[in-house]
């Protein structure tokens, strides 16, 4: 297969929780991007986008993290992030935060940087214009649309098109695709009972598909869904979209 086009220097913003809890997602993202002929860089000073602090109300703690992100990625040709909620944080809230800091220079920096920031699936479909990335994954899979990808980023059926092009995959649609899984960051612990009730609906929908794997563009939702599926001993696993797209024929 030939994916040769202008090779890009892609800076990967792995996100704090993928770095710590889901390194396989990062490895898979690197594999896919390199297979497509691009170079992947990892600015090592990166940590967290600030979403958890911001969304929980600790805005003072979140503000320095915006500056940190800008410093780390200002020279990037393209920034790829395998987490739709972190990208939503940047696009929807960073400009607000710069406003709160009354920092004109930061606002200018964001105006330049943010258009270069892409969620992983979005980078493939919108920036590179691809649907088939040469993957093979002969399993039954269902796709969970995370809320931030669906509503804030408007990913639409981009991820589904990517999945449909995977060799050997059997993609099974889920009931209530647009329904939140109930993760919601600190919501999952602050409102544990409601979150668990929402999760129960989601795991039921996942199980009803008969899929072996539930995939998404967000490991945060998946960690929550996986936790529920494992607690119920269902045998259904979760996997980030990048890990499916990294699959190769053996």
């Amino acid at each position: 297969m030939n994916f040769r086009r202008t090779a890009l220097r892609v800076a990967l913003f792995i996100t704090c929780y993928n770095d710590t809890l889901f390194p396989e997602t990062g490895k898979a993202a690197v594999r896919v991007l390199e297979r497509l002929g691009h170079t992947v860089e990892f600015p090592s000073g990166q940590t967290c986008c600030g979403q958890m602090h911001w969304n929980t109300g600790y805005q003072a703690e979140a503000l320095p993290l915006v500056r940190r992100f800008v410093e780390q990625f200002r020279d990037a040709e393209a920034v790829v992030v395998p987490s739709s909620s972190c990208v939503a944080m940047m696009r929807d809230h960073y400009p607000l935060m710069a406003g709160e800091l009354h920092d004109e220079a930061l606002k200018r920096d964001l105006n330049v940087l943010l258009p270069k920031v892409w969620e992983f699936s979005e980078f493939l479909t919108k920036k590179l214009g691809l649907e088939d990335v040469g993957a093979s994954y002969p399993h039954k899979v269902t796709y969970h649309a995370s809320c931030h990808g669906l509503r804030n980023l408007g990913l639409g059926d981009g991820p589904i098109q990517l999945l449909k092009s995977v060799r050997g995959i059997e993609l099974i649609p889920i009931e209530g695709l647009e329904q939140c899984c109930g993760f919601g960051g600190t919501f999952a612990v602050k409102n544990a009972d409601v979150s668990a009730a929402m999760l129960a609906d989601k795991t039921k929908a996942v199980i009803d598909t008969g899929a072996e794997i539930c995939t998404a563009c967000d490991n945060s939702c998946l960690m929550h869904i996986e936790g529920g599926l494992h607690r119920q001993r269902t045998g259904v696993r979760t996997l980030h979209l990048a890990e499916i797209l990294a699959g190769e024929e053996r």
């Binding site: 792995i14 993928n18 770095d19 710590t20 809890l21 889901f22 390194p23 396989e24 997602t25 990062g26 490895k27 690197v30 990892f42 090592s44 999952a188 612990v189 602050k190 544990a192 009972d193 979150s195 668990a196 999760l199 129960a200 960690m223 929550h224 996986e226 936790g227 529920g228 494992h230 607690r231």
Partner: peptide, 25 residues
């Protein structure tokens, strides 16, 4: 403590032995 809300209805898989950045390094 506070995190008990998580394990009320969900399990959590253990942290992998290597972080992504360690792998990349």
């Amino acid at each position: 403590g506070m995190l008990g809300g998580w394990t009320q209805a969900r399990d959590l898989h253990a942290m992998p032995q290597q972080t992504f950045r360690e792998w990349f390094d």
